[in-house]
Design a protein around this nucleic acid. Sequence first.
DNA 1: TTTTATTGATTACGTCTGTAAACATTATGC
DNA 2: GCATAATGTTTACAGACGTAATCAATAAAA
Lengths: 127, 127
Amino acid sequence: MSEDKKQISIAESKVMEALWRAYPLSAEDVTTDVAAEHNWSVGTVKSLLNRLLSKGAISAEKDGRRYLYTPVLSHDDYMTREGQGVLDRLFDGRVSAMLTHFSRHEKLSGDDIAELKKLIKELDNDE
Amino acid sequence: MSEDKKQISIAESKVMEALWRAYPLSAEDVTTDVAAEHNWSVGTVKSLLNRLLSKGAISAEKDGRRYLYTPVLSHDDYMTREGQGVLDRLFDGRVSAMLTHFSRHEKLSGDDIAELKKLIKELDNDE
DNA sequence: TTTTATTGATTACGTCTGTAAACATTATGC
DNA sequence: GCATAATGTTTACAGACGTAATCAATAAAA
């Protein structure tokens, strides 16, 4: 991914997800993969792939007469970027502020809390 | 806010922030408020206000010949919606998954962790 | 009363996005 | 060899978005 870090749109991210699941993939493979959630034509998928290529988020390698596409932007980097984006925008960049917000609005389930406790314990053990 | 819950764009959310800080405000007040971060013309702000009106995110009350604008969409609701949106999209809807991701990528500061511990303790006390 | 300033309403325009068709090229099947 | 299918490339279009100018109406100033 180049330094300019162009934004990936929602539809484009769905194509990225297909590639993150298993790569490299052809345009047809991607179309089939996302069909579970999006009834897109191959034309649509090709458009999205070409936009992602322009943005440097994926690379393409010729395979016979078709291309096989590979993610350049990693799933982890994308999650970090998007997650940090909303934290910066809405929660002073702090995940704890987001957690506080959700806990005050009863958005945390018992499972969530149990997992959080476990995670905090792990973080403690790491120190 | 009506049931359809139209999306608020980034620029529109900046206008919302001005209104959340202190309402009701006129178009000129908003322009002045956001000037710290955005050197927008009054025209731009009016456009954004009218879009927000169309989306039902704000309401307007006549004050002489101008309007004073008031948020309908609350800051808390917006934060919940946006936060949950990215959680749903990227983290299976779980804040703990997001936290796990950030902790694995060394994105949690010592302060973050201390706050999280405090929060978990508070959650424990709530039960 | 006329002119100017203020304010809302409307229009404008380039870029991005979602979706996909149209076109061009090449490989495959008959 | 010709027709068809596969695949890439390009074009298309409506709506959203960022930004702001233009137009219309009204109040205030001269």
